[in-house]
C-alpha cells in the first residue's frame, strides 16, 4: 500500500506523457538530425585518418556508440526545472504536508516519463543506427538485457544528479549555471560526444573515477563491445553511484526543508 501511491504517480505521468506525443516526436527529429550530423563528421574523420578503427571502434560501432549516448542524454525529464520552481516560488511548502516523500515522488514521476521517452527514443535510435550504420558486427542479442540494465542505471544516475543540482536552490537563488556545467561534463568527460579512449591517458584515468562516464560512456561502450567481465565491474560501480546520489538527494532535501523560510501563503 505504501508504494501504491508512487505507482499511481508513475502511471499518471505516463498517460500525461502520451498526450504530448508531438512534443516527443519533435525531440526525436532532433535526435535523428544530430545523429546525421555526427555521421557526416565521423565519416569525414575516418576517411581523413585512413584507419579502420579509431579509439578501438569501427565507423559502424562509433555510430552505434553515439546512438546510445544520445539515447541516455535525450531520455531525461525536465523535472529538475519543476523542482527548482517549487523551491524558489515557495510552492514546496504546500508539498511538505502531503503523505509522500518528495524525492521518491520525483523519482516516480521520472519513471513514468522515462518509460515513454526511452521507448520512443529507442525505436528511433534503432532506426537511425540501422539506416546510418547498418547492423553491428558481432552483436549478440543475448547481451541486450544487460545493456538495457546499464542504460537504465545511466538514465537514473543522470536523474538523481539533476535532482541534487535542482535541490541546491534551497541555498542558491540562481543555479541554472550548475545544470549547464553538468550537461557539458557529460558531453565531454562523460564520453557523450566521443569515447573516452580518444582522450589523453591522464584524462582517461581521471574520467574513470568520475560519475559522468557511468551515465553515458559505460552503457554505450557495453552496447558496442560487450563482455560479462566489463559488465559486472562497471554495472556494480553504476549501482554504487546510483545509491550515493539517491542518498545525497534525500540528505539535501531534508536539510533544505529545515532551512526553508516561506513568507506569505
Amino acid at each position: 500500500m505504501k508504494w501504491y501511491k508512487y505507482w499511481q504517480v508513475s502511471k499518471i505521468t505516463m498517460v500525461n506523457s502520451l498526450v504530448y506525443f508531438w512534443n516527443f516526436l519533435s525531440r526525436n527529429v532532433f535526435f535523428a538530425f544530430i545523429m546525421f550530423v555526427y555521421m557526416m563528421l565521423w565519416r569525414t574523420i575516418y576517411a581523413q585518418k585512413g584507419t579502420a578503427t579509431i579509439g578501438g571502434l569501427t565507423f559502424k560501432a562509433m555510430i552505434w556508440y553515439l546512438v546510445v549516448t544520445e539515447l541516455v542524454t535525450l531520455s531525461r525529464t525536465d523535472l529538475h526545472n519543476q523542482v527548482n520552481n517549487d523551491v524558489k516560488s515557495g510552492n514546496v511548502a504546500y508539498l511538505l504536508n502531503k503523505p509522500y516523500n518528495y524525492v521518491i515522488y520525483c523519482f516516480s514521476y521520472f519513471v513514468g516519463e522515462i518509460g515513454i521517452t526511452l521507448l520512443s527514443n529507442s525505436i528511433i535510435g534503432l532506426a537511425i543506427g540501422f539506416i546510418f550504420a547498418g547492423a553491428l558486427e558481432g552483436f549478440n542479442i543475448m547481451h541486450l538485457p544487460f545493456i538495457i540494465l546499464s542504460l537504465l542505471a545511466g538514465c537514473t544516475i543522470n536523474f538523481f544528479i539533476y535532482l541534487c543540482l535542482a535541490l541546491t536552490s534551497f541555498w542558491v537563488e540562481e543555479n541554472s549555471a550548475f545544470f549547464w556545467i553538468y550537461s557539458k561534463l557529460i558531453f565531454t568527460i562523460g564520453g557523450m560526444l566521443m569515447p573516452i579512449e580518444l582522450f589523453p591517458k591522464w584524462l582517461q584515468s581521471l574520467s574513470q573515477y568520475m560519475p559522468f562516464a557511468y551515465v553515458t560512456y559505460v552503457p554505450a561502450r557495453l552496447a558496442v563491445d560487450f563482455s560479462f567481465m566489463t559488465f559486472w565491474s562497471q554495472f556494480s560501480i553504476q549501482l554504487l553511484y546510483l545509491g550515493a546520489f539517491f542518498v545525497l538527494a534525500m540528505f539535501l532535501y531534508r536539510k533544505g526543508v529545515r532551512n526553508l523560510n516561506v513568507n506569505g501563503g
Binding site: L41, I45, K49, E174, A177, W180, K184, L198
Partner: peptide, 27 residues
C-alpha cells in the same frame, strides 16, 4: 553567474574539438 556560466558552458566544446584535432590534422 549566467554570463560566466554560459562562457564556461561553451568552452566545453573546445575540449571536444581539441581531442578530435589531436587525432586528425584537418576535418
Amino acid at each position: 553567474i549566467q554570463c560566466f556560466g554560459m562562457m564556461l558552458n561553451n568552452s566545453a566544446f573546445i575540449f571536444f574539438w581539441w581531442i578530435l584535432f589531436n587525432n586528425v590534422n584537418t576535418i
